[in-house]
Design a binder for these strands. Structure first.
Lengths: 123, 123
DNA sequence: CTGGATCCCTATCGATACTG
DNA sequence: CAGTATCGATAGGGATCCAG
């Protein structure tokens, strides 16, 4: 995105004034990753302590095996979550936020506040 | 999403501990709205002062008329942007962040920080 | 200038069945 | 338990043309 002047009544927002094109793409990329269906729910489930595959699925009604598996791969590829395998019998698999993922969740707290402050999105 | 215990090493994250099911749905809904392709770019363009249809399109390479029109409707329906019509000849149409939209952009600043801190998402 | 209408292709999704 | 395979339905998106 090309740079344009920040709107006068929004100049108290400091951090969007000096974002260059690359940073815009990062920003959009991040939004599209965690904006995909179930992505944020999965991250939130992990933030809340869910670890096992079935545990995550259990706390997110409507989430199917297939989509959880797919999203987990994407989030792992993005470095937001980690998949641990313990070679016992049966094999124990658990998912955890990485440091990077935990930082992301922290950075989303103001957004959660915003949601609480403004109530439901209009349909 | 059903409540589960917050992971021990994440208990310093206060705001996700007490989010109930409704708030989870709001959170996910917000993420999916602004996570759609071009949505965040459009909001960012408005934050930076773009107002006219052609102006927004000009600063977002790859964004088509159709998608800008569609996203604008969605964002307007969500109460994040406002569409003003001045009945001159020709008709002057401009887009602006609402208070709600501007608040949203403010709440996204930590996320922009996160992107800068962690660099590009892995491909 | 600001879109609306249409076509058409692709990505994505949900459901179902199956596996180590 | 933790996925993979397959399939049909649907939604999203690009390109193009058209209009007030």
């Amino acid at each position: 995105m090309t740079y344009v002047q920040l709107a006068p009544d929004l100049q108290h927002i400091p951090d969007f004034q000096h974002i260059d094109d690359d940073e815009c793409h990062r920003f959009q990329g991040t939004m599209e990753l965690i904006g995909r269906r179930w992505s944020s729910a999965i991250l939130l489930a992990l933030t809340r302590g869910a670890e096992r595959f079935s545990e995550i699925r259990a706390v997110i009604p409507g989430l199917s095996d297939r989509l959880l598996s797919q999203r987990a791969k994407e989030l792992e590829a993005a470095g937001l979550i980690e998949r641990r395998v313990v070679a016992s019998t049966p094999v124990q698999i658990s998912y955890h936020l990485t440091r990077r993922g935990a930082d992301l969740m922290e950075s989303l707290q103001p957004l959660a506040h915003w949601g609480q402050q403004w109530g439901d999105l209009p349909r």
